[in-house]
Simulated assay, not measured.
Amino acid sequence: MAYRKTARTEQRKEERRERLILSARSLIAESGFAGTRAKDIAQKAGVSEGTVFRYFPTLAQLFVEVYRSVASQEIEVVREVAQGEEAASERVATVIRVHLDRALRRPGLAHVLVAEPLSAELEAVRLVHRRYFQDVLADIMSDGIAAGEYRHFDVETAAACITGSIVEALVLPVARSEVGAPDLNARIDFVVHFCLNAIAPWRTSAPLDDAPIKTHADA
């Protein structure tokens, strides 16, 4: 009986911890890290403010968990869409398009992921997850080289440059919360084409301008 009671207690603790993370995530999406306070998290989660600090001794620790949760989810999505039998250029385009589309549909979360000024601790987490995204792109481009679609080139640097372009392309729209703006799809298509053109000189087949590139209208 004691074991069953302990198991139930641990389950309730884990459920409460997860509720705190989800509550903080919701508030951060609205107000950013800088505008989110412990008492607001407690109120949203239906617990006392002391409970927040019982599970997370500092707000910084809770914020790191929130950032990891959101960023890890995004990385899993792009890893999933990166799989496939399509040409590497198409897979790169799909990863970029899906990532941008998800970000621009949720500008609050996108802003904290790519644009909000962060503490050194959170910035370190941001850089780690940005590297994960670069690795997805680098792996796809390596596949393209192995398949003969591209000649050999520095995929690590190319992935870093593409990632930087995507981040910069997101900063202004998410800062302005331009969800539903009529030019967003065109902007996404432009970024995709821009990034593919960046690695086009190493293609072994037709130049990019002669190759079919899917747009939002084709998706």
Rank of each mutant, 00 (worst) to 15 (best):
V179H: 07
L100A: 05
I199E: 03
E30N: 05
V98C: 06
A198L: 12
L184P: 00
D183A: 12
F56A: 10
L100E: 02
R54V: 10
T163H: 10
D101L: 11
I75W: 00
R176G: 05
T163W: 03
V77R: 10
H193W: 12
P57M: 04
A160L: 12
R25S: 14
R54L: 12
K44E: 14
A93I: 04
H216M: 05
V112S: 09
D154G: 06
A198R: 07
V70E: 14
T163G: 05
L22R: 15
E116F: 04
F53Y: 15
I28P: 07
T9E: 08
A2Q: 09
T94G: 07
R102S: 03
H111I: 02
L109D: 12
D40M: 08
A181S: 13
E121I: 06
A159P: 01
A169Q: 03
E76T: 13
A120N: 06
A186D: 10
A24K: 06
H216Q: 07
E65A: 15
E178S: 15
Q61Y: 05
L27T: 06
V47K: 07
G35M: 00
Y150Q: 03
G180E: 05
A159E: 09
V114L: 10
L113Q: 07
V81G: 10
L208R: 11
G164N: 07
P117I: 02
R102M: 04
Q73V: 01
C195S: 15
E85L: 10
S48W: 00
E15Y: 01
R37E: 13
E14W: 02
E15I: 13
A160P: 03
V179S: 14
L127P: 03
R25Y: 04
E178H: 08
Y132M: 13
G180I: 08
R12V: 06
A24Q: 02
G148V: 04
A186Q: 15
K13R: 14
R4G: 00
A217N: 02
A175D: 12
E121F: 08
L118E: 05
G164R: 00
R25F: 01
V167C: 03
V98R: 14
G84T: 08
V81H: 09
T6M: 06
S72Q: 14
L27W: 11
